[in-house]
Design a protein around this nucleic acid. Structure first.
Length: 595
DNA sequence: CCACATATCT
DNA sequence: CAGATATGTG
């Protein structure tokens, strides 16, 4: 079966993979070209990012993958990456001479599917096709995940503009549809001419969909969510308000359950983070935190499970340094959520009470304190939202139970995917049509590992039209002092405290940071989570490709991804560039990685 | 009537 | 259990 590669030589895949290499250094360009050709790839080189972009735009389906240098005079490699991610959803591999983590981090955050260090080795190039392949697979999965929607899904084809992706292997697509049609037919027979009697197709909240949902929720702000708003934000045509409402109901339930679980153990072990004002530049700080964190936690012996512990153990300290892969896996970034003013803890109607509490606590989970200071800034989202254990958004019932749409990159690189999924509001939605046979083995293995989140960014405007804080702000506030990670611990269920935060950055305290998840033995949630992690992540693969890390990362990643996405999205929305500058994702949800 | 929360059903 | 649907409220 073909994989939908537009490549003329799809049959010989990966030979013929169309690679676009962008590097301002002609020497490198030559070298790479040679190497790539040796791999039987169809190589196109380009010395200017601008030209590359132009080329890509002109020949939308002309390439399968892009390899770009980071440092280029005319256009920052990241910028290019960003554009590619947004406009054509192609896998992009970044490369540079130095492996400065911050840079790599940035690349990753911008959606690079891999990051190569020069000199690039043949072996690495030989394997780049994996990214393309993986992407294809993901696309397929995505489609599959829509099967549950029966006819509704068809609309996707029509309504969504698709710039995306290579023409699918229509055959499969069709077959998928066919099946649906059949199903519908059956129903129709029963309900014949009374359309009103027809039951609505059940919405299957795939990881993906859920992801969007969570994104929307976060975006709106926990205390302000409403089905309608979410629906709008999600921008999923066939979804109804009821669907969302229902899901929201479950979601809340889930969250409150979660909260309850952790609530009891309240304690303060957090340290004050007296001044966060340090003006660290994004990426770096995030990175730093992530990297250091493990060490700290280990050293400190504190709640070792500050998430990364697991990773630490597996990865080994060395990783904390040069090894990108390792680092990346630490990327427990999380992103602050913007909220209209969530700190304002506006008491709502009585019946909202519970929710409020929830909100609050969620906040606390995510270093709320840090964000609390700004009004319409960000708010950490309940990172655990939707992940793992509890709320199980459907694992697609269909074909093999691959619950998680694979994300592009996991298989071999530990890069969380951020990328290409972010689309401009307008161009939104990918249209994936390719369907291919799934590599069973692969999927089985990876299966639960990742939750590829695919973002779909939210719509354009904040519904309320409120403005967004300057990002820089965010950066400062969000940055988490690595040192504090080791000490994170529980806190009261934040609510009370949070709401009274005196919104001043300096007073930010970390006292109630990761509370819930961090709590030792705080319940089965953790326990089970841990188990899951172990089971899913390590089985069999540890030794390989940093899998362990990525696995972990992705595994519970919905939150992360969400965050990343959101953040990214915001970046786009608000201009963009801040992304590059303030991409730092505070480390936080390590709790999710509890060991 | 709408949007929402909540309860209950499937 | 997840999601749909019914009911009640503002």
């Amino acid at each position: 079966m073909e994989y939908g590669f537009a490549s003329p030589r799809a049959d010989a895949f990966p030979a013929g993979l169309r690679v676009l290499v962008v590097d301002d250094d002609p020497t490198w360009l030559k070298i790479l070209e040679k190497m790539l050709k040796k791999c039987s790839y169809d190589v196109t080189t380009c010395g200017l990012a601008r030209d590359a972009l132009k080329m890509l735009r002109e020949r939308k389906d002309g390439f399968d993958i892009v390899i770009s240098d980071v440092n280029m005079p005319d256009m920052d490699g990241f910028k290019l990456l960003e554009h590619v991610g947004l406009e054509m959803d192609l896998p992009v591999i970044m490369m540079s001479v130095d492996g400065e983590t911050r840079r790599v981090m940035k690349g990753v955050q911008h959606g690079a599917c891999d990051y190569l260090l020069k000199p690039v080795r043949m072996k690495e190039l030989q394997n780049i096709w994996q990214h393309v392949f993986r992407k294809k697979i993901n696309e397929v999965k995505e489609i599959e995940s829509l099967e549950g929607y029966e006819d509704t899904w068809i609309r996707r084809n029509g309504s969504e503009g698709s710039d995306d992706g290579p023409p699918s292997s229509g055959g499969d697509t069709i077959s998928v549809k066919k099946r649906k049609d059949m199903e519908n037919k059956e129903h129709e027979d029963q309900e014949l001419n009374d359309p009103s009697a027809v039951k609505k197709a059940r919405v299957v909240w795939s990881v993906d969909l859920h992801q969007k949902f969570v994104n929307a929720v976060n975006y709106i702000g926990f205390d302000k969510v409403g089905p309608k708003k979410i629906l709008d934000l999600m921008n999923v045509p066939w979804l109804t308000r009821e669907n969302v409402a229902s899901h929201l109901q479950k979601y809340r339930l889930y969250l409150s359950r979660l909260q309850k679980q952790n609530e009891p153990k309240v304690c303060f072990a957090g340290t004050r983070q007296s001044d966060l004002t340090s003006k660290d530049t994004c990426g770096s700080s995030g990175l730093q935190s992530s990297i250091t964190m493990p060490q700290n936690s280990v050293a400190t012996g504190n709640y070792g499970y500050c998430g990364n512990t697991v990773l630490v153990q597996d990865v080994g300290p060395e990783t904390c340094d040069g090894d990108m892969k390792g680092i990346i896996s630490f990327l427990p970034v999380t992103e602050p959520k913007r909220t209209l003013h969530s700190d304002a803890y506006v008491p709502q109607k009585a019946n909202n009470g519970s929710r409020q509490g929830l909100t609050r606590s969620c906040g606390s989970l995510g270093l709320d304190a840090n964000y609390a200071s700004f009004d319409s800034t960000i708010q950490p989202q309940p990172s655990w939202s939707g992940e793992i254990t509890g709320m199980q958004f459907t694992q697609q019932p269909k074909k093999e139970q691959d619950p998680y749409p694979m994300s592009d990159d996991y298989v071999h690189l530990p890069l969380p995917r951020t990328q290409h999924n972010h689309r401009q509001p307008t161009s939104s939605v990918n249209h994936r049509t390719a369907i291919m046979e799934r590599d069973k083995a692969t999927s089985a293995e990876i299966k639960a590992l990742l939750i590829g989140y695919r973002s779909n960014h939210v719509k354009k405007e904040s519904p309320t039209g409120h403005t967004v804080e300057p990002v820089s702000f965010q950066s400062e506030a969000d940055i988490v002092n690595p040192q504090d990670f080791g000490k994170m611990s529980t806190a009261t269920s934040g609510s009370s405290q949070m709401k009274n935060q005196s919104f001043s950055p300096s007073s930010i305290s970390n006292s109630e940071p990761l509370q819930q998840n961090t709590i030792p033995g705080s319940g089965s949630f953790l326990a089970s989570l841990h188990k899951d992690l172990e089971v899913c992540s390590f089985q069999g693969y540890i030794p390989e490709n940093h899998f362990n890390n990525i696995d972990l990362f992705n595994y519970d990643d919905p939150a992360f991804s969400t965050n990343l996405q959101t953040h990214f999205f915001e970046g786009q929305r608000f201009g963009c560039d801040y992304l590059c500058e303030s991409m730092e994702y505070p480390v936080m949800d390590q709790s999710l990685f509890i060991a």
